[in-house]
Design a protein around this nucleic acid. Structure first.
Length: 635
DNA sequence: CTAGGGTTAG
């Protein structure tokens, strides 16, 4: 012992001290205090010296050394240790080999981990589970499930660890094994009420869109913790059920749930969807006050929340304050500028990103930049970037969506023929989204020739989309082709389905006021629809002409006008005018694209009342000031 | 020795 202490570096000293103190084999508290950075590089030497000097290297040594390698992700040292273990000592140890699987997983070397499992003379539930969870954690769902099946075939019974891991890989049916089958196995093995298994299980159902099943699993859990609560909240948020997510978050918070950074991240996603700025600020305050560590993911979702709530200044402030940024941080910020039509800011930030070189742009980055150029009227810059991508100067493979951005870019700039030629030259058949974007351009720039061709092609691919009929009909109406308008309307009535009813809302003192078309549900509906009428009379005096081509119903003009005045965004705008102080902008959110007539209406509010209006629709932000919109009437 | 929830885009 004494000799060893003299010649061996500090790493082995740790071991010796630990043995003398009869500590458990993990180095627990002592490891950080006693180890220096160069210790693991001395590992091999230490081992050699120990065996040369006749010291028995026992299980405990190996385990401690392995723990070190896991903690430090010391790959080369771990590999040497592995060789040592297999060649000289404990070749049969299931325990040590399982630790090696964990070690290789931590080093992101699944192939090495798998080799350890495959070479194990015998396996137990822990070694199977270690490998299954390695696959699950790294996103290899197929491999995880496949191994799970092999485990069952081998006659090993899974435990709660196995189920919690394997369920992560079960979202959707994997063909040979479904989440439901695993669920029944869990019931059979009596793990359904286990918190870890339960949260994994409810998460699986939620990711599969089965939110009711997820909720009932959640409600049946005998105990709840942060993770299970977060899982159900984020389940709602990920499905776009933002209000449900918010309501549940507040309820669970009231019941004493201790939120952590994942919880906040999830609820922020819901608040982004709702554009609930007041709630968002409140959550941000909670984060600051509760001293939840500010992890990158949380900050990313704050950037996104502020930008989707219309406050780019706060987004940028969050972005600038970050010590570490991932590609998602950059993307969230770029998307923010892009949706607000701030093309210049998009390019500047993109340049900064490329200069810093800390983070590599990915496909989403380029999408954000291209659509930013498009919405910001910088089409030539956008085209340059697209060609940098096709020539390999930007290392991102162009995808369908990138081509779509270029079509949008050209079309928006009025270069409709060029956009059409571009589509013909694409290496794939145009998608409905791409044709729809060109059709929109044809409507704005009154190109009936191409519009008609593209429109009919689109109606063949997507006959169920009512929006396509409306745009093509607008185009016909603009050139007085009423016969075609009528026939289009008949086709639409036969084939189209209205998937999502139009809905607009506005946040007032942390309460969301939602309006549907021709709303009858809001408590102040009489007052609100009275205000819409009043405004329309006032605006007509200022030259407003209702754009009846936005209504495709087969009714007389008076009826059409009535339908137009019932649009949800007009109700929300008028409510904003009544209920908010003159000093603040009116912030309205719509779940679909805003219609031309409501866009005109908002312009007039900004002009005649001198109120700034911020309207977020499905695609982007519209900021109305003095009768003009930041989108330049193209959206 | 093995375990669950999270951020951008569409």
């Amino acid at each position: 012992m004494l000799r060893a202490r003299r010649v061996l570096p500090s790493f082995s000293k740790t071991l010796i001290q630990q043995q003398q103190l009869h500590l458990p084999s993990s180095l627990s508290n002592s490891k950080h205090a006693l180890l220096t950075n160069d210790t693991t590089s001395n590992l091999h030497q230490s081992l050699l010296q120990m065996s040369l000097r006749g010291h028995a290297i026992n299980f405990r040594h190996y385990n401690a050394l392995l723990n070190e390698c896991v903690a430090k992700r010391a790959f080369r040292e771990g590999k040497r240790l592995h060789a040592h273990i297999i060649k000289t000592h404990y070749p049969q140890s299931v325990y040590l080999r399982t630790r090696l699987i964990v070690f290789y997983n931590k080093c992101d070397c699944l192939e090495d981990a798998r080799r350890v499992l495959d070479e194990m003379p015998e396996r137990n539930v822990v070694s199977w589970t270690a490998m299954i969870s390695a696959y699950s954690q790294r996103g290899y769902a197929y491999e995880a499930l496949h191994l799970f099946v092999q485990m069952l075939r081998s006659g090993t019974e899974p435990n709660e660890f196995t189920f919690a891991s394997v369920l992560t890989s079960c979202a959707g049916s994997m063909g040979f094994f479904s989440g439901r089958q695993i669920h029944s196995l869990i019931i059979k093995c009596n793990y359904e009420a286990h918190v870890y298994v339960g949260s994994s299980l409810l998460d699986m159902y939620a990711k599969d869109g089965k939110v009711h099943e997820a909720r009932s699993i959640f409600e049946c859990l005998p105990e709840r913790d942060v993770v299970s609560c977060t899982a159900i909240i984020s389940g709602y948020a990920q499905l776009g059920l933002d209000e449900e997510a918010l309501v549940l978050f507040r309820q669970l918070q009231g019941e004493g749930m201790q939120s952590n950074y994942v919880t906040y991240t999830s609820v922020l996603t819901a608040l982004s969807g709702l554009a609930a700025l007041d709630h968002g600020k409140q959550v941000h305050n909670h984060v600051l006050r509760s001293e939840v560590p500010s992890f990158v993911v949380l900050q990313n979702s704050l950037i996104d929340m502020y930008s989707k709530c219309g406050n780019l200044t706060y987004s940028r402030r969050t972005f600038d304050a970050m010590h570490e940024r991932t590609v998602i941080s950059w993307n969230a910020m770029l998307v923010g500028y892009s949706k607000h039509g701030e093309g210049k800011e998009v390019l500047e930030l993109f340049m900064k990103m490329r200069e810093e070189k800390k983070v590599k742009p990915d496909s989403v980055t380029i999408l954000a930049v291209l659509s930013g150029c498009s919405h910001g009227g910088l089409e030539d810059k956008g085209l340059d970037i697209f060609y940098d991508m096709t020539s390999g100067k930007i290392e991102v493979e162009p995808e369908t969506e990138h081509y779509g951005c270029v079509v949008d870019l050209l079309g928006r700039a009025g270069r409709v023929e060029e956009a059409f030629e571009f589509i013909k030259k694409m290496p794939f058949e145009p998608t409905a989204a791409i044709l729809g974007s060109l059709l929109g351009a044809c409507r704005v720039h009154s190109n009936v020739g191409i519009g008609e061709f593209v429109g009919h092609r689109l109606l063949e691919i997507e006959p169920e989309n009512a929006g396509n009929y409306v745009i093509l009909s607008n185009l016909y109406a603009s050139s007085g082709r009423w016969e075609d308008v009528r026939s289009l309307r008949d086709q639409m009535l036969n084939k189209a389905v209205i998937k999502e009813p139009g809905r607009s809302w506005i946040e007032l003192d942390q309460v969301l006021h939602t309006f549907h078309a021709s709303d009858r549900s809001h408590p102040r509906r009489e007052e609100v629809s009275g205000k819409v009428k009043e405004l329309s009379i006032k605006f007509k005096e200022a030259g407003y002409v209702p754009d009846l081509s936005c209504v495709l119903h087969d009714v007389d003009e008076e009826q059409k006008e009535k339908i137009l005045l019932g649009h949800s965004e007009k109700l929300a705008l008028s409510f904003g005018l009544i209920a908010t102080p003159e000093s603040v902008p009116i912030r309205v959110i719509k779940n679909l694209r805003i219609c031309v007539d409501c866009h005109n209406f908002a312009k007039l509010i900004s002009k005649i009342y001198g109120r700034e209006v911020s309207l977020r629709d499905k695609n982007r932000f519209h900021r109305f000031v003095g009768g003009k919109c930041s989108c330049g009437d193209y959206w």
